[in-house]
Simulated scan of single mutants.
Amino acid sequence: MVGVSFPLYSNSSNVKAARERRQSAELQVQQAQHDAEAELRTSYEQLQGLQEVIDHSDVKLLQESLALFKKALQQGEITALVYYVEINSIYEKLQRHIDLHCQSVKLLAELHRNEL
């Protein structure tokens, strides 16, 4: 007696499992692409928002204010306490401007890195 066995059903289940693994991998790739695009879009929108804030801040006016307060202190029109309180406020605004500029440069570098 000779018997031959054809594994028809086991082969079809292997093919079906392989097809589903391939579809799963394709979906994972599509999801990763979608996530990357969404992250880039968010970074770009954040960069635009930072640029608007930076463009609306008037650094030149703040620097002129520093010079005027210094002149007023030297001429005795204001006290040293008033001078230091006012320039502290101006320096805080200038520091915020520098921080925003730094964030925007970092975002821009990140966007350019992702373009490559």
Rank of each mutant, 00 (worst) to 15 (best):
V2Q: 12
V2S: 13
V2F: 13
V4E: 09
S5N: 11
S5H: 14
Y9Q: 11
Y9R: 07
Y9F: 14
S10H: 04
N11S: 06
S13H: 07
N14Q: 15
N14T: 07
V15Y: 09
A18N: 05
R19Y: 09
R21K: 14
Q23D: 14
E26A: 07
E26S: 02
L27S: 11
Q28E: 10
Q28G: 04
V29A: 08
Q30V: 08
A32G: 07
Q33V: 12
H34K: 09
H34R: 11
E37F: 15
E37N: 15
A38G: 02
A38R: 14
A38I: 13
L40V: 11
S43L: 10
Y44C: 03
E45S: 08
Q46W: 03
Q46H: 08
Q48L: 08
Q51D: 05
V53K: 15
V53L: 08
D58T: 01
K60P: 03
K60Q: 09
L62E: 01
Q63H: 13
Q63Y: 15
E64I: 03
S65F: 04
S65A: 06
L66P: 03
A67S: 05
L68F: 07
F69A: 06
F69N: 01
K70G: 15
K70P: 01
K71R: 12
K71Q: 12
A72L: 05
Q74S: 13
Q75K: 10
G76L: 04
G76C: 05
I78R: 02
T79V: 07
V82H: 07
Y83V: 02
Y84G: 06
Y84F: 14
V85I: 12
N88P: 00
S89K: 13
S89T: 05
S89E: 04
Y91A: 00
E92A: 01
E92G: 02
K93D: 00
K93S: 01
D99W: 05
H101I: 00
S104K: 00
K106L: 06
L107H: 04
L107G: 02
L111I: 12
H112C: 09
R113Q: 14
E115D: 13
E115I: 08
L116R: 13
L116C: 10
